[in-house]
Amino acid sequence: MNGPSEATTGLGDRPGCTGYCADMRAGIVYNPVKVDRDTLARQVETAEPIEWSEPLWFETDADDSGRAAVRAALAEDIDLLIVAGGDGTVRVAADEITSTDVPLAIVPAGTGNLLARNLGIDVTDVVEALRTAFGGAEREIDLGELEIQAPDGTRSKHAFAVMVGFGLDAEMIDKTDEGLKKKVGWLAYVDAAGRVISSLDKVRVAVRLDGGRTTRSTVNTMLIGNCGTVTNGIIILPDAAIDDGMLDIALVRPRGVRGWAQVAGYIARNNMIVTKLLRRRGHLGRQRTGAALGYGQAKETQARLDEPRAVQVDGDVVGEAIALRAGIREDALRVRVPGEHKHDEGPAV
């Protein structure tokens, strides 16, 4: 009888081995405001393969959105970075990890959990998310880059994994009551949207895609997305895919109540089960542009506003801008996702 093969013993070589992975170790970055370490440690013990070494733990600091903790984790000899926190912590980790060969895994612990939703990661079960972290498939995804110019001329840069923009989304996030968000979660955003939508000011904006012709429009909201699903799984940018090397743009420009009804109609249709199914099977063409809602796609987007507006980046308001530029870094991240990923599946729904 022949000796046991690698397949039967599970012996594999680092990195990226399957089965028995000697001395594999994860670094866990966690936000103590969102996550209880003792509880998470018990959940990690349940999900972590027995062959893995004890993980290293790094607590985030609110002063730097967790950047120091992520850098400390990546400075160690880790084979996997697990981030347990909200969208802000995940965004910082995504930005920092792009210069390494370490894959990123997400344990959703925020209100929106935007990137996790777009990757199909379970946002309701921590243990299941951890099983994906240790045993899921790996997927290469894009990362967006945003540069904004403030009214005083200063510039700042921000990485984004999901979506940036100004208008309704930024004002809604800015006006959301934090106490209410802790009590009712994403429903607090609905409360904020109801309060700001009637008073939302329009702004004249000049937009240029991939160095082409500049178009001018009066809008309530502009969105630039690396992927298209937001809070509670609502699809806003139906053509967006997180690994297509493109940014998707939406200009929301309703006129009065009828215009807002048209916008609501677009969104409702895009979120119908039959629409999602037809899109996944490739039976639908690209999203149509209408009077109330315009769509575009580009590798680089530039916009200049007549008046400054608050800008949000993956759910965090980062300041006011009079101009912005967004680009894309293709295949910048390796992330752990559930099961076997097929490249042609498109965005998660």
Rank of each mutant, 00 (worst) to 15 (best):
G282Y: 03
G282K: 05
G282A: 03
G282H: 07
G282V: 07
G282D: 04
H283M: 12
H283Y: 11
H283I: 01
H283W: 12
H283K: 14
L284M: 10
L284S: 06
L284Q: 07
L284G: 08
G285L: 06
G285P: 08
G285D: 03
G285A: 00
G285F: 04
G285I: 01
G285V: 00
R286L: 09
R286M: 01
R286P: 15
R286F: 02
R286S: 11
Q287N: 03
Q287I: 04
Q287E: 10
R288F: 11
T289S: 15
T289I: 01
G290M: 02
G290L: 00
G290N: 06
G290Q: 03
G290V: 02
G290S: 08
A291H: 14
A291Y: 09
A291R: 15
A291T: 15
A292S: 14
A292M: 01
A292I: 02
A292Y: 05
A292V: 01
A292D: 00
L293W: 10
L293A: 07
L293I: 12
L293K: 06
L293Y: 08
G294Q: 14
G294S: 13
G294C: 08
G294F: 10
Y295I: 00
Y295H: 14
Y295W: 09
G296C: 03
G296V: 08
G296I: 05
G296D: 12
G296Y: 12
Q297I: 00
Q297W: 04
Q297T: 09
Q297P: 07
Q297L: 01
Q297A: 05
A298S: 04
A298P: 06
A298R: 07
A298Y: 06
A298C: 10
K299W: 09
K299F: 12
K299E: 15
E300H: 14
E300D: 06
E300V: 15
E300T: 15
E300P: 01
E300N: 11
E300G: 12
T301E: 08
T301V: 15
T301W: 13
T301D: 07
T301P: 10
T301Y: 15
Q302A: 11
Q302S: 12
A303K: 02
R304G: 02
R304P: 10
R304T: 14
L305Y: 08
L305T: 05
L305N: 06
L305K: 03
L305S: 04
D306Q: 11
D306I: 09
D306R: 13
D306W: 07
D306S: 13
D306F: 08
E307A: 15
E307Q: 14
E307P: 10
P308N: 02
P308R: 03
P308H: 01
P308C: 00
P308L: 00
P308E: 00
R309E: 07
R309I: 04
A310R: 14
A310Q: 13
A310P: 14
A310W: 04
A310G: 10
A310C: 05
A310H: 08
A310N: 11
V311I: 11
V311D: 01
V311W: 03
Q312L: 05
Q312D: 05
V313G: 09
V313H: 08
V313D: 09
D314K: 01
D314L: 02
D314G: 10
G315R: 10
